[in-house]
Design a protein around this nucleic acid. Sequence first.
DNA 1: GTCTATAAGCTGATAGAC
DNA 2: GTCTATCAGCTTATAGAC
Lengths: 211, 211
Amino acid sequence: MSVARDERQAPDRRALRRLQTIEEILELAEAVMTEHGVSGLSLSEVARRLGVQPPSLYKYFPSLGAVYEELFLRGQQRHLAAMRAAMQGRTGLDALHRGLDAGGRWALEHRALAQLLFWRPVPSFEPSPEGLAVSAEMIAVQRTALREAVSSGELGAAADSDEAIHLLSTLIAGVIGQAMANEPGVPWGAGRFSPVFPRLMALFAAAYPPG
Amino acid sequence: MSVARDERQAPDRRALRRLQTIEEILELAEAVMTEHGVSGLSLSEVARRLGVQPPSLYKYFPSLGAVYEELFLRGQQRHLAAMRAAMQGRTGLDALHRGLDAGGRWALEHRALAQLLFWRPVPSFEPSPEGLAVSAEMIAVQRTALREAVSSGELGAAADSDEAIHLLSTLIAGVIGQAMANEPGVPWGAGRFSPVFPRLMALFAAAYPPG
DNA sequence: GTCTATAAGCTGATAGAC
DNA sequence: GTCTATCAGCTTATAGAC
């Protein structure tokens, strides 16, 4: 029985250790991107910080691109989770406003990841289908809130449309992009750009008057 | 006298040749960025296309960063020139609309340069004061159009403000950013994003009603 | 003087043997 | 996990060609 336990636990312990190392690599990679830019990510630098030799990282990721891919997937998941948490228990325009606000806050708190997710600064890197699926789910969440807003009479029927989604994503991408490019270090809600967010939401709502 | 002419002309020819080479390097650099991304610019690749060895480029630019710097400066100048040409002979909202439209078109026709100008994908590269001065001039041009629009009663007094400038730049950065990230190859006026530009201008105008 | 080339130092990605 | 090796890129030093 103790043998059986050993047989089960020894691999488990190794597997756990391996997962922890992978987690550490990804955290260090995000830190490096934050300091040197998305395209400044270097496996050698990550290895130095982890205290191993660069080739050792290939035991965990098959290539630099694979690290980008995992960062992209997890970034999408966390961004979506941040939005969902803020929308919890809310509906319609209220949910939309809170979700996008939380998404903007997350983006400025994770600038490097946000750049990787929303601006594709590394053309050689193509996001995986899983990553894109999360992105599609985020759009679905927003679309649901729009539909609710239409149902409740907050917005006109035209707001339940792809066009409205594109308008919305354009507005939010504008705020985040301007804040990131022109005000490094300034958090969400401060500076000259992200405070225009409520105003943009008002403009959006005004573009789809009920009736 | 022929000696004197030789003394003057020989240096001129060399200087001209030098300027042509610099021009060629910058054009090749833009092509490389277009193919491999802004951060994918490589002096070795430029040298290959120019038919020289990489170290030779250092006779023309002291570093890779210096090439980025010159691309940034010229990009700002051309973007501003495109806007100004479209605004020629117009005033107020009409000038603003045409200028920003031309600016958007220029950005999608020179995606790599536009990314370099407006999204800072290379954190190690800081734009030169001259480059930033051109950027400031572009804002001044837009501000003038806003002032005209207020004077003529097209917009309310609040439109002649920094806040309005930030709102405007946020809107336009949103369209261009979304178009570049999500629709590579799709020109200005086509696709799902840049067609919302007129709508954004209408929303902007609605945000500053005269009265 | 000015351009170009070759050589070499340094860093990084990555494959392969141990 | 490592060490070794290859290859590409930026950059400097140096020497020859025009």
